[in-house]
Simulated scan of single mutants.
Amino acid sequence: MVIEVRPAEVFEDVRTLVGPKRADASVCWCLSYRIPSTINNKMRGQERGEFVRNLLADGPLGVLAYDGDEPVGWAAVAPRADTTFARNRKIPHVDDLPVWSVWCIRVRPGHRGKGISHALIEGAVDFARDRGAPAIEAYPLDNQGAKVDQTMAYAGIRKNFEAAGFTWAADTTSVLAGHPRILMRRDLS
């Protein structure tokens, strides 16, 4: 299997990874950290997908991993200033550098355990670097080897980011699925 990571530009492929199984379902669409909660909480069903389609008109929303032509993984990545992490009280800013954030890693069932999350993290790093990011941050779970519920593992886990050259930058007060989240960073200069 050869995994290729590309900018997330094709709506149908993005929908495959972050959209609902039923068109009328109100699932995340990976909008929770991308847009203000007042807007996010008001949208329902198909309105969420149309919102993502409109966002894609302005450019990629992250990166997708492909096995051949099949989309098998997703990573959300954007300038931190364009996300709710810019104002998040639980995740600190360690300095004023205009960093980018990677906050969601998702691999489709049936494709897990094949290194796709590692490829997605590296793809997110390349995506940010290619767009001038001086550094990239992530806010993974510090699960210390404990099992993590797959639905809550979207933030990633510390060891995967360490393997990609990220280092601890700060503790946070954010907890997800019973595990503390930490701020990790990788310099891109």
Rank of each mutant, 00 (worst) to 15 (best):
G62E: 03
A57D: 04
D171N: 11
L17W: 01
K42Y: 00
N40G: 06
M152C: 08
N54K: 15
A57S: 15
S117G: 15
R129K: 15
R106I: 11
N54E: 14
R131P: 03
A135L: 08
S101N: 09
T172F: 04
I105L: 15
D69A: 15
G115C: 08
D95M: 09
A75M: 12
E47N: 01
Q150I: 11
A119L: 04
F161V: 12
E137Q: 13
R158V: 15
V94L: 09
G110P: 02
R15M: 05
A146W: 02
W168R: 13
K114F: 07
G113W: 01
S101Q: 10
Q46N: 04
E50S: 04
E162T: 14
A163M: 10
A75R: 04
G132H: 02
D142S: 13
V5D: 03
E4N: 11
E70A: 14
P60R: 10
A146Y: 03
L31C: 01
V175R: 05
V52C: 02
Q46V: 15
R181E: 13
F85A: 10
G156V: 11
A78M: 14
P180S: 08
Q46M: 12
E162F: 12
S101R: 04
W74V: 11
Y154I: 10
D13A: 11
V148E: 00
W103S: 13
V52Q: 00
T172W: 03
I121M: 04
G113N: 02
A25L: 07
P7D: 04
V94F: 06
A81V: 14
G62I: 13
I35G: 00
T38E: 10
Y154S: 10
S189W: 06
N41K: 02
V175P: 01
M43V: 07
S174T: 03
V14T: 03
T151G: 09
D95V: 14
E4W: 03
D142N: 13
E162A: 14
L120I: 11
E9Y: 00
P60G: 08
A153Q: 09
C28Y: 00
N143F: 03
P60E: 09
R22H: 05
D82K: 14
W168H: 15
H111V: 07
A138I: 09
D82Q: 14
D24V: 05
R80C: 14
G115N: 05
T151D: 12
I157T: 13
V18A: 03
P134V: 15
T173L: 07
P20A: 02
T173G: 04
P71K: 05
A170V: 07
D126F: 01
H118R: 15
N54A: 14
H118N: 11
N41S: 11
V63A: 11
G62P: 05
R15Q: 09
R15T: 04
D149W: 04
L97S: 13
P36I: 02
F166D: 02
E70V: 15
R15F: 13
K42L: 13
E47K: 01
W103Q: 01
K114A: 14
G115M: 07
P92D: 12
E122Y: 05
N160H: 15
M152T: 05
T83A: 08
